[in-house]
Amino acid sequence: MDLEAFKATLAEAEPLEEWGRPLQALWWAAQGNWDRAHRLAQAEPGPDGAWVHAYLHRLEGDLGNASYWYRRAARPVSQAKLEKEWEAIAAELLP
């Protein structure tokens, strides 16, 4: 699946289970459901979950917390527009 196909799924009622928690979290974030997205990202112990977690805290404006999660993800703190960062994360995580 490519980024455009992933974006097209935003018209669906739920994300696909086989995507895993980080992609599902991004999907929920795009739906405006920050809490559900955060729960999924927080439940993913690896660097992909930490990267999405960082994005979510940046989205909410908590830059200190976001910085912590970028470090956990071994990623630089993003300076990109939020939409561009969302796309970059999704593109990298898509199978």
Rank of each mutant, 00 (worst) to 15 (best):
Q79H: 12
E17T: 13
W69S: 01
S67A: 14
A41H: 02
P76W: 14
A91N: 09
E12V: 13
Q24D: 08
H53R: 00
Q42R: 02
Q42D: 09
E18Y: 10
E83A: 09
A74N: 15
R71T: 07
D35V: 05
R71Q: 08
W69I: 01
E60G: 10
W86G: 05
Y70P: 00
W19E: 00
R58W: 01
L56M: 09
A73S: 07
N65M: 09
A74F: 15
A37T: 10
P45Q: 02
A8L: 12
K7R: 15
N65F: 06
W27V: 02
D62N: 11
L23S: 03
A88D: 07
G49T: 00
K84V: 13
R39D: 14
G32S: 14
Q42A: 09
A74D: 07
A88C: 11
A11Y: 15
A37S: 13
R75M: 05
I89D: 01
L3E: 03
A41C: 01
Q24I: 05
D48P: 06
D62R: 10
G61H: 10
P15F: 13
A5G: 12
N33S: 15
Y68E: 08
G32M: 14
L56C: 04
L63K: 09
V77P: 00
A66P: 00
A54Q: 01
V77G: 05
L94Q: 09
P45H: 06
M1D: 13
H53L: 03
Q79A: 11
A88V: 10
E44H: 05
S78V: 04
W28C: 01
D62V: 05
G32F: 15
Y68K: 01
